[in-house]
Amino acid sequence: MGNGVGAPLEVRTLAVVQYLMGAGGLAGAALLVWAASVVARKPSYGGPDTLTAAQAIAILAAAALVAGGWGGLALVLGRRLRQGRPWARTVSVVLGALVLAGVVTLVVAGWPMPVPAYLLAASYPLLCLALPNTAAAREWFRPS
């Protein structure tokens, strides 16, 4: 366990992946907040079956909270992985398994997506499952 300088390549790679996912989550949250501000300034054009501006803003705000929370968690997780925290390895593996289960559910349910999109969606959880379980990474996360 160390400060991240001597971390194995697998751990550094996973940390960079987490940093990128975190940055993407925070950027997505910012985009959703911007979309909510646009909706707030627009008059309603829909009929009785459309969302009101307040409903749309509430949905966008909730989505922004989820995206921002996920992004923040990914950034913290990436940093703690580089520092060799054993709990970060466990969290990474558990989250990877949950996300992979979601991707498998989409495939089994026949969600209409092209095959490359499925492969891209599965790449992140597979990295979260595989990289912390190499011999070098397990040694890095072993408590001193």
Rank of each mutant, 00 (worst) to 15 (best):
G2D: 08
A54V: 10
A63H: 05
L95Q: 12
V39R: 15
L100Y: 05
T13F: 03
P125N: 13
T52F: 03
A53C: 04
K42E: 11
T52I: 04
L98R: 01
E139H: 08
G4P: 06
C128I: 00
A109P: 01
P125W: 00
A88G: 05
A15R: 05
S44V: 06
R12N: 03
G78K: 00
S92C: 08
T50F: 04
K42T: 07
P43C: 03
L81Q: 01
A27N: 04
V66C: 07
Q55F: 00
V108N: 06
A109K: 12
L126M: 12
L81A: 05
W140K: 03
W140N: 03
W87D: 13
V76K: 11
A61P: 00
L26Y: 01
L100P: 02
G4N: 09
A136P: 07
P86G: 07
L20R: 06
L119F: 10
G96C: 08
L20A: 15
W34I: 09
T105S: 04
I57E: 09
V11L: 11
S123A: 15
A7M: 09
G46M: 02
V93S: 07
A97S: 15
V93H: 04
T13V: 05
G28I: 02
P86L: 01
N3T: 11
G68M: 10
V94F: 05
V38P: 00
V99C: 12
L129I: 14
P43G: 15
G4A: 07
W34V: 06
A136E: 15
Q83H: 14
G6L: 07
V103Q: 02
A109D: 14
A130M: 10
Y124H: 06
R80F: 01
A62T: 13
G4H: 11
V16D: 13
G72Q: 10
A88Y: 03
V11H: 10
G6M: 07
M1H: 12
L106R: 14
G84N: 02
L51I: 01
W111A: 12
T134A: 13
I57P: 01
L120P: 01
L26C: 12
A74M: 11
L26Q: 09
W87Q: 14
R138T: 12
G71R: 11
A23Y: 02
L98N: 04
V108H: 03
G68N: 04
Q18I: 00
